[in-house]
């Protein structure tokens, strides 16, 4: 896997993971979607979040191998989480849309 492509891909997978995990919490669910999440939705969001974190790690191992991969994983997760946390209070809706918009803008150029 091309490493620049992997950088963007894993960043957005990590971002999606943290968005799901944050939406499973009352405070952030209220920020973005209003109201509290039901227990079913909460469970699905949590499972999705953790599954995406695992997927991100696997993607890193594919791009960088198991020595550098975990370093890239931690670094990209930190960057993605910082982006989400400091975007949420200022533009909660945009923070949620970014999970779709970001990959749409960043990833296609690699296939041209």
């Amino acid at each position: 896997m091309d490493k620049h492509f992997a950088t963007y891909l894993v960043f957005f997978v990590g971002y999606a993971a943290f968005l799901a995990l944050s939406l499973a919490m009352d405070r952030h669910h209220a920020q973005v979607l209003h109201g509290k999440p039901g227990s079913g939705r909460r469970l699905i969001l949590r499972l999705t979040g953790w599954a995406l974190l695992a997927l991100a790690l696997w993607l890193c191992s594919q791009a960088w191998g198991w020595a550098i991969g975990p370093v890239a994983w931690f670094g990209l997760l930190s960057a993605a989480a910082l982006g989400l946390v400091f975007l949420l209070p200022y533009a909660p809706r945009f923070a949620a849309w970014l999970v779709v918009l970001g990959p749409l803008l960043a990833l296609p150029p690699f296939f041209l």
Binding site: I68, G75, S78
Partner: peptide, 13 residues
């Protein structure tokens, strides 16, 4: 290791 993508991650962190 890892060239510029890694350097930027280190820079951000």
């Amino acid at each position: 290791f890892g060239g510029y993508p890694m350097k930027w991650l280190y820079f951000i962190c």
